[in-house]
């Protein structure tokens, strides 16, 4: 592609008078991307998350050994080396392979929690903010009750009630993480609900449901995306914490938190058993945080001409 065609494409994207719906939408996305990519650290964060996705997708190819079946006889607690990059654990399983497969479970937890918690929070918050009055009071007091519990303790209680396992851990984390989203969505809703453009839609005879869904929610979504991305690190840590306490993923599932828990017993002599999954959690959490910061700069409705 020559420099000229790139130049003309950029002009097409940044055009002041887009000729189609698609061009308008792409132009908008391009502006957001330019703002995002100006932030080097955010790009690093995005690369980490993309790497996580790739590792999870191609775990079968990338992992040299089975994540669950080890060589108890010959390969117990081997230090990092050429055969086992991150060493082996007490059951003779290759830690590198387990971390690679563990990426799948990390993504599974993070995505499921985001899919469950964010829409609940968004719905509760926008409805409370737009309806006001009794609806608002009831919904927000319920939110307050959930917020009053320490997150991990409430998740613990849920897992204890539902039984240990990664699905229940996901559910417990989702139940404990929607209240902040509801708060954010409500706050955003309160700032726009009395604006003239919402009034104008009311004057067209739109139902409250339609106004919330099509006019208010799109305005809340960017701050929500930012918050969810920043929370991803916390979700991973909570999942790891539950795994560490034996209430999340059950053996022999290669979940990072559970791996640290099982490495605890020999943390002084065979440090690599706990250190490798710990480093994985650290890097992925950092990636999500950097990505979230970048998204905040790119999507913040208060910055510039959104």
């Amino acid at each position: 592609m020559s420099a000229e065609t790139i130049q003309s494409r950029r002009e097409w994207l940044l055009s002041d008078r887009p000729a189609s719906r698609l061009q308008a939408r792409l132009g908008r996305a391009y502006v957001a991307w330019r703002r995002f990519s100006a932030n080097r650290l955010a790009l690093v964060g995005m690369l980490i998350i993309i790497a996580l996705l790739v590792v999870a997708a191609f775990a079968d190819v990338l992992a040299p050994y089975s994540p669950t079946v080890g060589d108890l006889k010959n390969a117990r607690l081997l230090p990092p080396g050429a055969a086992h990059w991150f060493g082996t654990d007490d059951l003779g399983r290759d830690i590198y392979s387990r971390i690679v497969y563990g990426a799948r479970w990390t993504l599974y937890v993070v995505i499921l929690v985001a899919i469950i918690a964010a829409p609940i929070g968004l719905l509760v918050g926008t409805i409370a903010g737009y309806a006001g009055g009794w609806t608002d009071t009831i919904l927000m007091r319920i939110t307050d009750i959930f917020l009053a519990f320490p997150k991990l303790v409430l998740a613990l209680a849920f897992v204890a009630a539902l039984g240990p396992g990664i699905e229940n851990a996901v559910l417990a984390i989702a139940i404990t993480s929607w209240p902040p989203y509801a708060r954010i969505a409500r706050a955003e809703t309160l700032t726009v609900r009395n604006s003239d453009y919402i009034k104008a839609v009311q004057l067209m005879g739109a139902s409250p449901f339609r106004i919330v869904l099509r006019h208010i929610m799109p305005l809340c979504i960017s701050s929500l995306i930012i918050r969810v991305t920043l929370d991803m690190a916390g979700i991973i840590l909570t999942a790891a914490g539950l795994g560490f306490l034996g209430l999340g993923a059950q053996p022999p599932l290669p979940e990072w938190g559970a791996m640290i828990a099982s490495g605890r017993r020999f943390i002084l002599d065979q440090w690599w058993v706990a250190a490798a999954p710990g480093a994985a959690i650290l890097i992925v959490s950092l990636g999500f945080n950097l990505l979230g910061d970048g998204l905040r700069d790119a999507l913040d409705p208060r910055s510039g001409d959104q």
Binding site: S195, D196, Y197, K199, A200, V201, L219, Q306
Partner: peptide, 12 residues
């Protein structure tokens, strides 16, 4: 028709 054209059109 509202007074402030800067506030009466949805920003997104």
């Amino acid at each position: 028709v509202f007074q402030d054209p800067y506030g009466s059109l949805h920003p997104r």
